[in-house]
Design a protein around this nucleic acid. Structure first.
Lengths: 193, 193
DNA sequence: AAAAACCGTTGACAAATATCAACGGTTTTT
DNA sequence: AAAAACCGTTGATATTTGTCAACGGTTTTT
């Protein structure tokens, strides 16, 4: 199960990890299997771990006054599941994260991660690159949400995340685009013509 | 003019900058004054510099097919103006950044910034913290855009950025919230009751 | 000093999207 | 095997927001 993580990290770094480094990483990440629908994080709790998804699918969402869920992230293999605000500030989270499929996670606390980064400089570089890509992706998504119609946003979603279409039902995808499942259904119908 | 930058940096670091470090910073950042309405970055150009705003106000926006501007960021003193995607990837930008008021900037290229970070470890830490806060702010804004009504988003804006109300006209604030100036006008009228 | 550009507001109307209820076809749970 | 939950779709209708045009009061430019 750790193999996927090592492969993932090696994609980010220039020279491959030494076997000592690999051993440190394997020791630091704690494997955890969670079943479909099980919570990884619940609103109000502190997000103690960041979880690398070795296998499976998850979702992150907030719940509003009316009890409606708003999906902010969908995750599959090779994604990191966490609430960054809660994870770094150790404040109670406003989000829930749960498993959409049975999922294999590799967990690490912030303290252990910082520790590991001191021992393995390549990880510092990896985190920097991940942060950078993340910031860019967020900027794009924000701009798209502010500038585009629902139809165009869905089109972008299909182009950028075709894998997600196979893994998540339409009502979750609709929510992640900020629209209702009915609206998405109509947009798709319209697009066929 | 560099004084503001040094003060800003010192707020982020544990031990104050030495005078050698301050000298390095002053040497690395090139001052530039730009007039109201002047471009700092134009769509299609590469964002060569990141600009620390010592004084003034700016805006970042994209322009859609219909020629409508969509504000993605408003900036005032102590903000950094840049398009991160273009700045780090050196790709043509999809955004414009221009001055809303006469503005004093301190410019640095990415290469020079990386250089400076090697000489002044405190800057690495500053950038890390800035990135972290930025990621958190983006996450909040995205969630707000997806989950809240226009009215609630404006309410949040007023609470989180009261200074901006004094510096930017309503039509820019409306655009940054993803609504038209007419809608914002009506929301404000409604809120008075 | 005059002209032009900018800004916020309002009204009438149009378009986009949400809401609510119902349905049939799945898949999951009991 | 039966019941329940889930999923996508559709229709009817309501709400939200956008569009267009016009206005009076600024501020800026000429």
């Amino acid at each position: 199960m750790h193999r996927n993580l090592l492969t993932y990290i090696n994609q980010y770094v220039n020279s491959p990890l030494t076997s000592e480094e690999e051993a440190l990483i394997v020791a630091a990440f704690q494997p955890k299997k969670i079943r479909k629908k099980q919570y990884f994080l619940q609103e109000g709790d502190v997000c103690k771990y960041t979880g690398f998804i070795a296998k499976g699918a998850m979702r992150q969402y907030s719940v509003d006054d009316k009890g409606i869920e708003h999906i902010v992230h969908l995750y599959i293999e090779n994604y990191w599941a966490n609430d960054r605000e809660s994870f770094t500030m150790l404040t109670p989270s406003k989000y829930n994260i749960d498993a959409w499929e049975d999922t294999d996670l590799l967990l690490i606390t912030r303290a252990d991660m910082l520790n590991l980064m001191e021992k393995i400089p390549a990880l510092v570089e990896m985190v920097r690159i991940m942060d950078e890509r993340n910031a860019i992706a967020n900027q794009r998504r924000l701009n798209s949400t502010l500038s585009n119609t629902a139809e165009k946003r869905y089109e972008e979603f299909v182009n950028n995340h075709p894998q997600f279409l196979q893994r998540f039902p339409q009502h979750l995808i609709a929510s992640s685009l900020g629209i209702t499942k009915e609206t998405l259904s109509r947009i798709r119908k319209q697009a066929l013509k």
